[in-house]
């Protein structure tokens, strides 16, 4: 039996969003927004969470799971408090992103999508995040705080060290972000 429940806030947000779509298509159209809300609440979207979303929207659970596994921003397993995402795409590759990436892996002792033992930091290699002028670039998401969407640009070993220091202290180094 499932013990998780979508929060009343999400139930309210679903009803507020519904009129933005044609009546007969609204349930399906809300699949992605509601999965996003569910991830804000639970930190990840696994089969159990997909079932909750499917029930809330009267959709087949298989459809919701298919959608959740298609998009890269849905974490299929729990992530750390901080999700550190490093772009290694070409714009950053040619400016040394793989050095920064290797530094993070070494320091945190994890591989791609790995989480530190204290559940503090999850490290992911991501594709282009549309900040190609100022690479290497990281984006840091903090669980339950969707309003920390900062970019950390022009990374080198020194800046990366400062960022990792701050995350290990339990804070996003907003002073280094933009």
């Amino acid at each position: 039996m499932t013990s998780k429940q979508l929060s009343p806030e999400i139930e309210a947000r679903i009803e507020a969003l519904r009129p933005r779509f044609p009546v007969e298509h609204a349930d399906k159209a809300m699949c992605i927004p509601v999965l996003t809300m569910a991830q804000e609440q639970f930190g990840h979207v696994d089969e159990e969470v997909c079932t909750l979303v499917a029930t809330a929207l009267n959709l087949p659970p298989a459809h919701v799971l298919g959608v959740a596994t298609f998009y890269t921003m849905y974490n299929n397993k729990p992530v750390g408090r901080f999700h550190l995402q490093i772009c290694t795409n070409i714009g950053r590759q040619i400016l040394g992103a793989y050095d920064v990436w290797a530094q993070c892996k070494r320091r945190l002792g994890v591989g791609n999508h790995g989480t530190t033992e204290d559940d503090n930091i999850t490290l992911s290699e991501v594709e282009c995040i549309a900040a190609c002028g100022y690479g290497p670039v990281a984006q840091i998401a903090e669980r339950l705080k969707p309003d920390i969407p900062l970019y950390f640009e022009n990374l080198d070993a020194e800046r990366m060290t400062k960022i990792l220091d701050a995350l290990e202290e339990g804070r996003v180094p907003t002073e280094l972000g933009s």
Partner: peptide, 11 residues
């Protein structure tokens, strides 16, 4: 949905 690597004008 600007995501073509190298592109950050729409952002």
């Amino acid at each position: 949905d600007e995501s073509e690597p190298g592109t950050f004008k729409d952002r």
